[in-house]
């Protein structure tokens, strides 16, 4: 009886009893969710345009952040100014992400065109390992601090007093959310309005048809991987500001996977809504169920189990259409 109460009633009593704390929890969940959504978006873009399930997306986040911090540390003694160094490191990192996109296309994707999905998937795990080894080899394996201030990201906090309580929003989190929104909107505009964006969507709809009307596969792939790289860099900066920069960050990369299960591998809106939903739910579950009942740290698996259960009832995901099988 008491267990039932603890599982079914008590958490809601807590939520109602301390609404300001509940809001705080929701906010934290929202911020993580936005970042999950961003990583998932990178996955979706690459999957849509090339049918490649890019496992390396999460590692690209770490790699981008690591490159930025590493370059900055390297540059500061030369230019003598934190901000100037950041201003130089940023475009250089973008350059690295472009070089990465190019080499991935040249070295990995091009020779593997036409291979079964699982082989390409494995190749991206190979890329993941290479990036981990390479990143640590060049920049060292120790934990680093994101150059938040040098990049001009605000670090203060905003306080509210809802319901006579107390709510604290860190400015860098607010920055993260705003940046994510800007990024997503510009991405949507790019996909829907520009010629390149149309080409990417065409590839997503019908590969062969798109090729036959003269869309260049390699150009698109480099472009898409570069966009994924830019998204990775943005995610890396804001996540790094929250949690430091090291390959331990790769756990957030795994979080994007249940988002994809939930939202579908090809749905942009699915990635966004799924990401936010998972961010919110796992936080709420951890605080109100995980910590009091299961000894905490449920965030490692909650998203996966949740997505799994949803998929059992809706195999097509939240946003997919019902699949009719044909023979």
């Amino acid at each position: 009886m008491e267990t039932l109460y603890n599982v079914l009633i008590d958490p809601f009593v807590q939520m109602y009893g301390m609404p300001d704390f509940f809001l705080q929890v929701l906010w934290e969940g929202l911020v993580s969710g936005v970042l999950y959504a961003l990583i998932a978006l990178g996955f979706v873009l690459i999957f849509k345009s090339s049918r490649i399930f890019n496992f390396a997306q999460g590692i690209m986040v770490v790699f981008a952040a690591l490159s930025l911090v590493g370059l900055h540390t390297f540059l500061v003694p030369f230019v003598g100014n934190e901000f100037v160094a950041a201003a130089i490191a940023m475009p250089l990192t973008l350059g690295i992400m472009y070089a990465l996109a190019m080499s991935v296309e040249r070295v990995v994707l091009r020779p593997l065109v036409g291979q079964p999905d699982i082989i390409l998937f494995m190749a991206t795990i190979g890329i993941t390992m290479f990036l981990i080894g390479f990143g640590e080899f060049v920049f060292g394996g120790e934990n680093k601090v994101m150059i938040t201030e040098a990049l001009g990201i605000p670090t203060g906090a905003i306080e509210f007093e809802p319901f006579g309580g107390f709510l604290l929003l860190e400015e860098k989190d607010v920055f993260a959310v705003v940046m994510a929104i800007v990024l997503v909107i510009s991405l949507l505009v790019f996909l829907n309005k520009s010629a390149m964006g149309r080409a990417i969507r065409a590839l997503g709809d019908d590969h062969t048809a798109a090729l036959s009307v003269g869309i260049s596969l390699s150009t698109i792939w480099v472009l898409v991987w570069f966009i994924a790289g830019v998204i990775a860099l943005a995610t890396g900066v804001v996540w790094g500001a929250r949690a430091g920069v090291s390959f331990a960050l790769e756990v957030i990369a795994y979080k994007a996977l249940p988002v994809l299960m939930l939202g579908g591998l090809e749905s942009v809106s699915g990635a966004i809504i799924g990401g936010i939903a998972i961010g919110l739910l796992e936080k709420v579950f951890e605080i109100y169920w995980g910590q009091p009942l299961f000894g905490g740290n449920t965030e490692t698996w909650f998203a996966f189990i949740f997505a799994l259960i949803v998929l059992l009832f809706r195999p097509q995901g939240l946003f997919g259409e019902k699949i009719i099988e044909r023979v």
């Binding site: 990995v108 593997l112 291979q115 494995m122 190979g126 890329i127 390992m129 981990i132 080894g133 390479f134």
Partner: peptide
Amino acid sequence: HVNVMVVGSLIIMFLIVEP
């Protein structure tokens, strides 16, 4: 670190040479 890097590259190489 070199190890991880080499294994990663080897995997890609093997997939290309003999999937």
